[in-house]
Design a protein around this nucleic acid. Sequence first.
DNA 1: AGACGTTTAATTGTCTGACAAATGAAAATT
DNA 2: AATTTTCATTTGTCAGACAATTAAACGTCT
Lengths: 245, 245
Amino acid sequence: MKIDTTTSTDLSQQIAKAIRDAIISGALPVDERLPSEAELADQFSVSRPTVREALKRLAAQSLIRTQRGATGGAFVNRLRFEDAYGQQITTSTLLLSMNDVSFATACEARYALERACAPLSATRRSADHLATMRAEIHRQGQPGLTDEAFCASDVAFHRALVDAAGNPVLSYQLAGAVEAMQPLMNMITFTARSREMIIGLHGDIADAITAQDAEKADMHLAALASYTQQLAQDVIAKRNARHNA
Amino acid sequence: MKIDTTTSTDLSQQIAKAIRDAIISGALPVDERLPSEAELADQFSVSRPTVREALKRLAAQSLIRTQRGATGGAFVNRLRFEDAYGQQITTSTLLLSMNDVSFATACEARYALERACAPLSATRRSADHLATMRAEIHRQGQPGLTDEAFCASDVAFHRALVDAAGNPVLSYQLAGAVEAMQPLMNMITFTARSREMIIGLHGDIADAITAQDAEKADMHLAALASYTQQLAQDVIAKRNARHNA
DNA sequence: AGACGTTTAATTGTCTGACAAATGAAAATT
DNA sequence: AATTTTCATTTGTCAGACAATTAAACGTCT
């Protein structure tokens, strides 16, 4: 493992890159123990704090885990889908909030991806997924539910829909798109009327998935997408009206 | 900014989390300067190396950038889509390689997502995207192209197709799915015959996008998906036959 | 011999103090 | 007024030390 001595970046960054590349290339297999911090410091001819900074960088990406004690050390971590979900959601959320992505753009992306899952979900859905979807629909009908709780249940419903496709890669990719939308959705005030409408569409979707009818599921998802867009437009229109008054 | 003093995790991890939460919540806006390392050490009642480890964790996620000098320090970084692409691709690639995701699963996810883009791409494609697609198709027909170069061009073609949808959120999500497939695709040996077939389908897709015919584009993408799956199955079948011989 | 506590060595986590390098602002000089 | 010099601030790096944790090696008692 070599580091580039001509570049002007941090040593800890160079060292992190060298180790990261070794992991990606497969030279360091999963669960392999890295040399101790002292050994790494020797190998790279740097001090231990510098090595530690490099290791923390890798730990932040879940590429390694560390353990104290006699047989401890840093080990190459098996990156699990569940671990990656969190990072994916954080990154997606920040991308939306920091880049002035419009509600329309985010919403379009989310429903386009979700509609891609629907046919697979219709084919493979298990009783479990159907039960989760029904439970969330029921929760959404409860009176006294705050807007935040309604949105959270909405996310749970859609994640069940996506997970029903039985493809972990799809679930991973969609997690970011679906969850990152929640802060944007939270800006909408859901009236009793709009909740009723959404719950109805959720029911239609669940019915179609239960019946394994991919076409109908897609149709109702499209309806939900356009209704969501319309709700957001109303909010924006009202805000502008108030602003100009 | 407070840290949880009851937990048993690293101090640097707790501090990183506290700062990360402040960024996500918006308490620390983009380009805001964090207190100096010495000040942070005081505030959190830890030493400077510990603060530095926390900052390196955040830097690894592109949440902050640092600058030396009198007016230097750590600044909240605007997370750009281009920055996020790289991390997304790395993570996706490792997820596939470390979790024994089958070619079939990854391929299914990729083409499902890509077909979600196609209707939007058909509507919004610009001359630029069409030109890129045609150029890559032309490159793919060049004799003497290595399998790796063929795959790379394939990726470039599909990224142009996705980018044509004009939705940066979609492009970001798809980048991981498309690029992470490349190492898997590289395992396939493309015969002259199979290249011809793929190039033909690429041409069909480009034609459909040019004609803004979403339905046809979807059809040809589906055909490409199933052909790719078949190629992979042949490779696996051959490998098994050799293994049993 | 076997079960159970004790010591010990290895390793990460944290702290202290120090110096180098970069960099912009202030001060001095022309 | 323009330019150069000095200086204070901040990050980057290093060395050495000690605390906390952990499993293995060792010893002791039954």
